[in-house]
Amino acid sequence: MTTVTTTVTPKLFVKMVLDRWYASITNCDVLLNSLSDEALQKEISPGRNRGIYLLGHLIAVHDDMLVLMDMGEKLYPELNEPFIKFPDKAVEKLPTVSELRTFWTKQSEAIKQKFENLKPEEWFEKHTAVSAEDFEKEPHRNKLNIVITRTSHLQYHLGQMQLLKNK
């Protein structure tokens, strides 16, 4: 058996994480394209979140990433209140599914552009929610870790939205 030796570098770590992030975004795009606007208005299961809420929630959470990673301001700050501050059905007036689909696409592209502008070593810099003192003690609280946690979050809600395919 041959042993392959790979040099572990920041570039390799970043590639592994971003490959998973982009694959998850693509999986969400495929799912959203397979669901009608009407399907996204339905609850995942009785008494649970609707697809429209989950889509808006993902956009709002990904918007927070821009601030956390010091990449600029939120693109859709108006989504914070209906999709993060309050639970589903607590806010009457929401953007339409069509609007949210457009926001999702534009935001995904904007995030991709910002991600591509970072050098590998910049991914290991602190994010904005950690102080310099705490970062010294906990260097894992970096920008790359934000992408790891948000990828898990996205996958969780993708699993929920898959249930809409049978409705």
Rank of each mutant, 00 (worst) to 15 (best):
T3E: 00
T5P: 00
T6R: 02
T9Q: 08
P10R: 12
K11C: 07
F13W: 13
V14N: 02
K15R: 14
M16D: 12
M16P: 03
L18Y: 07
L18H: 08
D19Y: 12
W21T: 10
I25R: 10
T26Y: 06
N27H: 15
C28L: 15
V30L: 15
L31S: 12
L32M: 14
L32T: 15
S34R: 15
D37P: 04
E38A: 15
E38L: 13
A39V: 04
L40M: 10
L40Q: 09
Q41E: 11
K42V: 12
K42D: 10
K42I: 09
E43Y: 00
I44L: 00
P46M: 10
N49I: 05
N49K: 03
G51K: 06
Y53S: 06
L54N: 05
L55I: 12
G56L: 12
G56W: 04
I59G: 09
A60I: 08
V61G: 02
D63G: 11
D64P: 12
L68P: 12
M69F: 10
M69H: 11
E73G: 11
K74M: 14
Y76P: 04
Y76R: 12
E78F: 08
E78H: 10
E78I: 08
N80S: 13
N80L: 13
F83Y: 08
P87G: 07
K89G: 07
A90E: 10
A90M: 02
V91Q: 03
K93V: 03
T96M: 00
T96R: 01
T96D: 00
V97D: 01
S98F: 07
E99I: 04
E99K: 08
L100Q: 10
R101P: 04
T102F: 05
W104H: 09
Q107Y: 03
Q107F: 07
E109S: 06
E109K: 09
A110Q: 09
Q113C: 08
E116R: 14
K119I: 07
K119V: 07
P120F: 01
F124L: 08
K126S: 09
K126P: 00
K126T: 09
H127K: 15
T128P: 04
K137C: 00
E138S: 13
E138F: 13
R141N: 14
N142T: 09
L144N: 03
L144Q: 05
N145M: 11
I146R: 06
I148Y: 02
I148C: 00
R150F: 02
R150P: 00
T151K: 04
T151Y: 02
S152M: 12
H153Y: 05
L154D: 02
Q155D: 06
G159C: 01
Q160P: 03
M161K: 06
Q162H: 08
L164V: 04
N166R: 13
N166K: 13
